[in-house]
Amino acid sequence: MDSDQPPLPLSKKLILFVVLIILWLIAQPVVAAQQDNAWQTLPVIPELSEFSKKLLQEGIAAGNNPHAFSKVGDCETSTDWYLHDFDLDDRYYNLGEYKEEFEPVLAFYKGSFLRRSLAAKPGFSAASVLSSYWIDYSNCAAGELPLTCEYNQHNPLVVLISMGTNDGYNPPVFKENLRAIITATLEQKRLPVLMTKADNVEGTYAINRDIAALAAEYEIPLWNYWAAIQSLPNGGLVEDGIHLTFYKNDFSDPYAWNYAWTYRNFTALQMLETLMNATKPWLP
């Protein structure tokens, strides 16, 4: 049947070939953009990889405190709005319908929520965490870095890393500095958890893309906070396009779910719950 059809003339074949090439060229940027933005569809709270679970086990064996987590980041991390209240009594928060779910998390990590991290400070870029200048001179020894000083003093098994806004000035250097933070953390058998940031100060999402790429490369958890707040007005950001909209920690108040800080702390507790459940089997 096919052999009965006359072959296409050469000129038509050529035209068909050129059309296919043009279609392929048009499709390339679209495919690339879809691949670039794939991180946006990743879940807010990930399943832990086998590598991550094994690291928790090895970290406990190495003497890291399974009940301690550290916060690493900038002003949105050093602020008391970030998890701090959950080490206070329940006048400071209301877990609402999540009380049963989260109370064990608060008990498990008690003391880490209100801890003032030595590796979190307003203005911090990823490089600042690794800078000998930025240590807390009253708490850290000469030669330490903010990151190592925090680890030496708090000895956490897991580390919540929320960085990138202050790297918006120069996104290309961010990835290597975050990589250095990750490797320094892994070397000490502590599990780094990377959070995507809410803003897009760099204009291209390059930083969140790098955060997601590094999480995948090292098989460490990606806490996709960005995805959690996209349905909020202005993406959960105040007028400056950087800082998160604030509301008190009252998960029973429907109004609270219009604000980015509610999601920040809520998803942080979800992330910690996942980590706690993966840690418990390895406890002595």
Binding site: G123, F124, S125, A127, L130, S132
Partner: peptide
């Protein structure tokens, strides 16, 4: 050196 300089870029 680059890292130390980058550490002050946010301030």
């Amino acid at each position: 050196a680059y890292r130390e300089v980058d550490a002050f870029m946010g301030v």
